[in-house]
Design a protein around this nucleic acid. Structure first.
Length: 536
DNA sequence: AGACCTGTGTTTTTT
DNA sequence: ACACAGGTCT
């Protein structure tokens, strides 16, 4: 492929990154600045310069990120045999399989729980698993008690010829360090591209180091580092240039995602952090409407507000959809254009229940396949009096991805459908349902929505704790920068939390946002009468 | 073994 | 509020 095509449509800093020389490269990629685009073109560039696909390894953190990357490589470059694009774990697995073959298994969460129950005397099995995982990831030191449990645990795994997820990385490091493997990997792999470099933990860092490769292309954003609780260490990112003195740094600072007010507001927030690489992200879009900072009397009003704002916009849709073709320009919305972002899963589930009562279909993101399956099952149970045909139609409407699955097959009974779903495969995204997106702020990373509501912006929720206030600030920064067009920041003056109803203070972060980007909305307390009558 | 009381924590999550 | 582990009593 020629260089002109590879650089086509890229801005100046993206071009610099794509054409960077064969030295360590650190790409600081702010939100919405074309990070994946840059990686895709960088790979194309390396290939154009004569690299072979099997010399390039591109590592991501999640399967979602990996499949997005692969898909975009495929679109731009066509299928590339030999190029690795996948997670740390998949990469580790490949190395282990090269040496051991397929004679081992990966422990599922359930199996892991069983093994732990067998070897530990007391304590919650799930917390013991967590503790072991932290130790394996070099985040914690074992005491004598846990040492003993770990020994028994590993012995049980050995018997089963099984590895847990952390073992995959640990074994891969051992194999890479083994002198007999040096030629096999260290010499054949010439380029490593690491996505979300700010999120790597000490164990993953060791894996990268085991290659002793200088041609590392690290992409990430320290301002979006939100996983320190699982060992992600921004220091790796901030120290990159100390570690590789010949490294070059490129900052991608043009945001193509969000309208200018959203970028400006989120920048004003993140600037309050001290530990960061200074950068200034600018939007290439128009200002757009100001952010709405909404004060509501209580959690119930919060839901009513969100429901009302969504309905207002969807109302527009039914009107405009009568005039086909105009929908996009006139701002016709679909349910999945809206997202409500929350700090904790508790809030997500509470909101799901309440928002559904207002008649707005919701889709909780990140819910695993088996839970979605349970949902379908219970829906069938609840509605088993309805004719099967009708029920099926409703399930399609609800789970829109079922449509494409049904193209070649029409189940004739509920049993049939369920067994069939299991056989068709557990790819949860295929069951993605139509509905307003509900998710945690953490889960929102990497996603974008036209209209975003961030709810529960109160002290004790975000920031949840006083310690590591900078990470909490980054989390809100990530959440805010998901919005493309409109952003609502909502806080309740009163809320029930852990069974207690009490007064809430607005998050201190709200006062840190540049108020030139903000329009205040104040919803007054309910009239006393309504309160007493306990409407709804 | 099963009922019942009591203390405790209670984010965020991937593979 | 609520789940869950662990102890105690029957």
């Amino acid at each position: 492929m020629n260089i002109e095509r590879i650089l086509e449509g890229l801005n100046e800093s993206q071009r610099l990154a794509v054409r960077a020389p064969d030295c360590p490269v650190l790409v600081v990629a702010g939100p919405g600045t074309g990070k994946t685009l840059t990686i895709v073109r960088r790979i194309a560039y390396l290939l154009a310069k004569g690299a072979r696909p099997e010399e390039i390894v591109a590592i991501t953190f999640t399967n979602r990120a990996a499949s997005e990357l692969k898909e975009r490589i495929r679109i731009f470059h066509g299928d590339l045999k030999g190029l690795f694009a996948g997670t740390f774990h998949l990469f580790g697995l490949r190395i282990i399989k090269d040496t051991w073959g397929d004679e081992f298994s990966i422990l599922s969460r359930e199996e892991q729980l069983e093994v732990i129950k067998g070897v530990s005397g007391s304590g919650r099995p799930s917390s013991i698993i967590e503790r072991i995982s932290r130790i394996k990831n070099l985040l914690d030191e074992p005491d004598d008690r846990i040492k003993k449990i770990m020994e028994d645990y590993q012995e049980a795994l050995q018997k089963k010829r099984a590895l847990d997820f952390d073992d995959i990385i640990i074994r891969a490091i051992d194999l890479l360090k083994d002198p007999s493997n040096q030629n096999r990997y260290r010499k054949t792999i010439k380029y490593i591209i690491v996505d979300e470099y700010q999120d790597i933990n000490p164990l993953q860092y060791r894996l990268l180091k085991a290659f002793s490769i200088e041609r590392i292309f690290a992409v990430g954003d320290p301002d979006q580092s939100i996983y320190s609780f699982r060992g992600a260490n921004v220091k790796n990112f901030l120290d990159f240039e100390k570690e590789y003195p010949q490294a070059i740094r490129i900052v991608l600072d043009k945001n193509y995602r969000s309208q200018a007010f959203i970028v400006k507001a989120s920048e004003s927030l993140i600037e309050k952090n001290k530990e960061r690489i200074p950068k200034k992200i600018v939007s290439i879009k128009k200002e757009g409407p100001p952010l709405r900072l909404v004060s509501v009397p209580d959690d119930r009003a919060e839901i009513e507000f969100i429901a009302h704002e969504i309905e207002k916009r969807l109302g527009g849709m039914s009107h405009y959809s009568l005039m086909r073709g105009l929908q996009a320009e006139r701002g016709g919305y679909s349910l999945s254009d809206f997202a409500v972002l929350l700090r904790t899963n508790n809030q997500v589930f509470a909101l799901e229940t309440e928002l559904k009562k207002t008649g707005i279909p919701c889709y909780v993101m990140g819910r695993v396949f088996s839970e979605t399956l349970k949902e379908i099952l219970s829906y069938i149970q609840e509605n088993k009096d309805k004719p099967w045909e009708l029920l099926l139609q409703e399930l399609r409407e609800r789970y829109r991805a079922l449509n494409s699955l049904f193209d070649n097959y029409m189940p004739s009974s509920s049993d049939d459908l369920i067994t069939w779903l299991k056989l068709t495969g557990p790819e949860e995204d295929r069951l993605e349902a139509e509905g307003v997106r509900l998710l945690t702020m953490h889960m929102s990373k990497g996603l974008e929505f036209r209209v975003v509501f961030i709810a529960g912006l109160e002290q004790g929720i975000i920031p949840l704790e006083a310690e590591d206030i900078e990470e909490e600030r980054r989390l809100l920064y990530v959440a805010m920068t998901r919005a493309k067009e409109e952003l609502f920041l909502i806080h309740a003056r009163k809320r029930s939390l852990y069974g207690k109803t009490g007064a809430q203070k607005a998050s201190l972060f709200l006062s840190e946002i540049n108020n030139q980007c903000i329009e205040d909305i104040f919803i007054p307390d309910r009239p006393l009468k309504e309160k007493q009558m306990g409407l709804f």
